[in-house]
Design a protein around this nucleic acid. Structure first.
Lengths: 260, 260
DNA sequence: ACTAAAACAAGAGCAGTGCTCTCGTTCTTG
DNA sequence: CAAGAACGAGAGCACTGCTCTTGTTTTAGT
């Protein structure tokens, strides 16, 4: 009972990737909304109906492209983190490296970025299978924060006694000056949010206080606000120095995340 | 030579708004990508070709909807600011009111939000006419920051000597504690960014340092990262307490903007 | 008040789309 | 080797955005 199902399955795999490749090409050329099954089939030298043997409908082809995009973004983020970590970069430098990698991938694949972080296609709802790859990129920043927390280099909101509540060496508490210094004791997220983020830390199995995870969730979303504004033309005629603007904003995000 | 061009022009205006209303209805029902000129015409009891007398093509109808959406969002933000200001709210409270109003509008009109802040339609480029209404909502937060700056209640990045460089009463400088307190002297944006934002302050005619405007631009984009994540389903299964999460993130944004 | 010109609604038509069904053919497997 | 599944090809349906033509209505100039 050799499970080697030979030429047919192999051909099916090849044709499936060929379809996705051509679809990605059309995506980059004409955008997601104009992605046409017929055009993909025409370009591949097959008839449109034959394509339905591989993808039951257009939305399923889009789903495949979406999961692939999430995976590609996650891989880029993980590669950046690995490279930065093996160079012995500090936490902030790793954070910047990952953010730059995410932006780099987005700039290189604007249509795929729009596919996963832009407006969802109308009737289409992303299936459960996309949540895993979607979390992959976010997990890189989360692990950086968790590493910083373990090293005692993460400011955790709401921690008043010991501002740096990591299990490692304590962070020296700054004696408050005479004036109001609103930035020192960061306000913690309200309780319902902490419930959500505590659940999140357990599901992701990361050693991080719920308050820190709440900051990370907000920062993660805000990062894509920057990217979407840049990619969707909202900064046109407003910000010209895109690289510098992004880098500066990223250290601000690191600050709100509690990173040094 | 009375310029009263009577019934015809009036009818044209009425039909134009009727078309846009029906298009908005279809937008909310089936999404932007499925907006069909034929369906709009059918619902209005006219033939599809007659619609082209009012909008030369589908994209121009979309453009009209986009400008209307920007205007509606801007009006909502301005109304919230006016209402908050006449109640004598502090700067932070006004900031929260405007952000809540923006989110409220977005939640009430998700498809219109996706139209203006989601992925752009493929071949379509927003014309110049959209930049004005697009800036309207942003201007409300900018004026709040400018008011705070005038009142000496805005932390300006890079201002080391007098941390609060407003023309009003000085902000008491906190004596730095023994430990590193990274949050007190906020790093200013790099020079090329400041060039952009200085130009922006001049064009918008607001009395605000370039460094503060750079923070505002980043914060403005980040605000829509939060909204897009919520509206586009990126928070599904992650954050359940949406209101509290948003409110908490908004005060964080106010902090990075320098608001108290 | 009459006429030329502009604006208009309607219909037919074109090229394209997603998707379904049927028809032979080819490959896999018991 | 034969039953059955998978496959490519084609026709066809209902729909789309858009163009062109036709005849009617309203406006504007004399």
């Amino acid at each position: 009972m050799t499970k080697i199902q030979g030429a047919r399955e192999r051909a099916r795999g090849e044709i499936t990737t060929a379809i996705k490749d051509e679809a990605r090409r059309q995506l980059a050329a004409h955008g997601a909304a104009k992605l046409s099954l017929r055009a993909v089939a025409r370009e591949l030298g097959m008839v449109s109906s034959a394509l339905y043997r591989y993808f039951p409908n257009r939305d399923d082809l889009l789903t495949a492209l979406i999961t692939d995009s999430y995976d590609a973004l996650g891989a880029a983020a993980e590669a950046a983190l690995a490279h930065s970590a093996e160079q012995g970069d500090a936490h902030l430098a790793r954070w910047q490296a990952v953010c730059r990698a995410v932006r780099g991938w987005a700039l290189d694949h604007p249509h795929e970025y729009a596919l996963i972080y832009g407006s969802p296609v109308p009737g289409y709802a992303a299936p459960e299978t996309t949540t895993g790859p979607a979390a992959r990129a976010a997990l890189t920043l989360i692990t950086i924060a968790a590493d910083a927390y373990a090293a005692g280099a993460l400011r955790v909101p709401g921690a008043t006694e010991d501002r740096c509540a990591g299990p490692g060496a304590g962070f020296p508490a700054a004696s408050a000056g005479p004036g109001p210094d609103p930035s020192v004791p960061l306000p913690a997220a309200p309780a319902p949010v902490l419930v959500d983020t505590r659940d999140l830390t357990e599901r992701l199995d990361v050693a991080l206080p719920a308050a820190a995870m709440a900051q990370l969730a907000a920062v993660w979303a805000q990062l894509f606000g920057l990217l979407s504004f840049e990619l969707f033309g909202q900064f046109d005629g407003v910000i010209a120095a895109r690289d510098e603007f992004f880098d500066h904003a990223v250290v601000g995000l690191a600050r709100t995340a509690g990173l040094v």
